[in-house]
Amino acid sequence: MRAYYFDSLPGDQRLPHDSTHPVSEETLKAIGVLYSRIPIDAAGQWEQKINAIASERAYRNHDIISISKAGLGDEFESKMKMFYEEHMHEDEEIRYILEGSGFFDVRENPTDAWIRIHLDAGDMIVLPSGIYHRFTLDMGNKTRTMRLFKDEPKWKAHARGDETDVNPYRLEYLKSFPGMRAAA
């Protein structure tokens, strides 16, 4: 995992867009983003570690999603644009990269700056409910990812806007920051 501020320059979303200003794990934790490195090993110890995390966080289900040009065919570009639209979810988003790599961009609070997080196989990220974020592949154009969830997934993406800014899950997220007042 490598995290840094997004440079906001025009260009393909799958390029690094590295501002050369790194972001520490402590900064990520401060905005509620958790990271773990769980190397994939042939003995399957990674599965035991994932199961322990799932149990600890009361996650009972998971699935595996593969994203690639070969797998999505003609829908590849439209799916990439959809994943890259800024949004939030009402559930935590837990992702464990099994193969390939990609970027999660998250909004820093209170600056609203984009932080880009590059993940490879063996990286796990937990995004809190209510955080604005987006996802894109990198130039490798493929990933196979395990998604964990409590019961049935609530992955409805709430696009950023006035209505989402007052979503109860967004307001609860903002309350987690000292000195922040949630809009009524």
Score class of each variant (00 low, 15 high):
4 Y>C: 10
103 F>Y: 15
148 L>K: 02
131 I>Y: 12
161 G>E: 06
61 N>D: 02
10 P>H: 06
21 H>N: 15
124 M>Y: 07
84 Y>C: 04
141 N>M: 11
27 T>K: 14
177 F>N: 02
9 L>D: 05
93 E>S: 07
142 K>N: 05
39 P>H: 08
59 Y>I: 07
139 M>G: 00
55 S>W: 10
125 I>G: 01
3 A>W: 09
120 D>W: 03
158 H>N: 15
70 A>N: 04
112 D>E: 14
74 D>S: 06
83 F>E: 04
130 G>S: 11
24 S>M: 07
182 A>Q: 11
51 N>M: 09
180 M>R: 12
59 Y>T: 00
108 E>Q: 14
108 E>A: 13
94 I>P: 01
177 F>M: 07
146 M>L: 14
159 A>D: 04
160 R>H: 05
56 E>C: 05
158 H>Q: 03
44 G>F: 06
50 I>D: 13
92 E>L: 09
140 G>K: 10
140 G>F: 00
101 S>T: 06
11 G>A: 10
179 G>K: 06
60 R>N: 15
21 H>Y: 11
85 E>N: 06
166 V>T: 15
77 E>F: 07
112 D>K: 14
95 R>Y: 02
161 G>A: 04
171 L>Y: 09
70 A>D: 14
11 G>L: 04
4 Y>R: 12
173 Y>L: 06
87 H>R: 05
71 G>D: 13
157 A>C: 07
67 I>L: 12
114 W>A: 13
76 F>I: 01
65 I>S: 07
138 D>V: 10
166 V>H: 08
37 R>I: 01
91 D>G: 08
49 K>C: 08
26 E>C: 02
139 M>Q: 11
9 L>S: 12
85 E>M: 13
